[in-house]
Amino acid sequence: MLENFSFRTIVEYLPLFGQGLVTTVWLSLLSFAGALAVGILLSAMNLQRGWLFRVPAKAYIDAVRATPLLAQLYFLYFGLPRLGIILPELVVGILALSLNSGAYVAEIIRAGILSIPRGQVEAGVASGMTYVQRMRLVILPQAFKVTIPPLLGQAIVLVKDSALLSLIAVAELTRAGQLLASDRFMPAEGFITIAAFYLLLYYGLKGLAALSGRWLGQAGART
């Protein structure tokens, strides 16, 4: 089997893989920024005592977690035009990833905030701080440190999920593999190459997680 494996073709297609990799990286970055925005908003809604914000936030998070990302992607891709909203595939893809990942980010942030001991809240209350002051000065700076490692884990998931955008013809990394597979009938070459690139991205993010862990570890000496 290996004697048929064409490294030459892979090298030939390398510029295409390179473009796909770059696209995957920046669309993942944008999507993760979007996911953070969605997640912060949802977790803030979810932490309210009144049901008015909490119930819709919970319903949204459940809906996202209960349905496949592919279904969500198609829902936006085919659904939005029906509503008269025509967007480029790339924008639909980033939107889908942001909205999907945002639900998971929301739960990570909520868990981070709830992990701060009750005594911290009480210390803030007892010194006359308002809710906003307690959040800003006491709770969020501590919750931030706790959430960094799981957020990087979610970022890794997002990068892999971005492969689905190939199905709506976004020219990202997986799409490059598909092109090689269909143009030259070389699926092994195409998909092994993209797998290698995803592995590279994974180790990049994992390194970042380790780095942040060490940084947090140092900061942890202060906690």
Partner: peptide, 20 residues
């Protein structure tokens, strides 16, 4: 209440200092 609390110091059994 927030105003009144500024006039009342409260020392907890478990200190509850801000670790950061």
């Amino acid at each position: 209440m927030a105003r009144l609390r500024t006039e009342i110091g409260f020392v907890f059994q478990s200190f509850n200092l801000y670790p950061h």
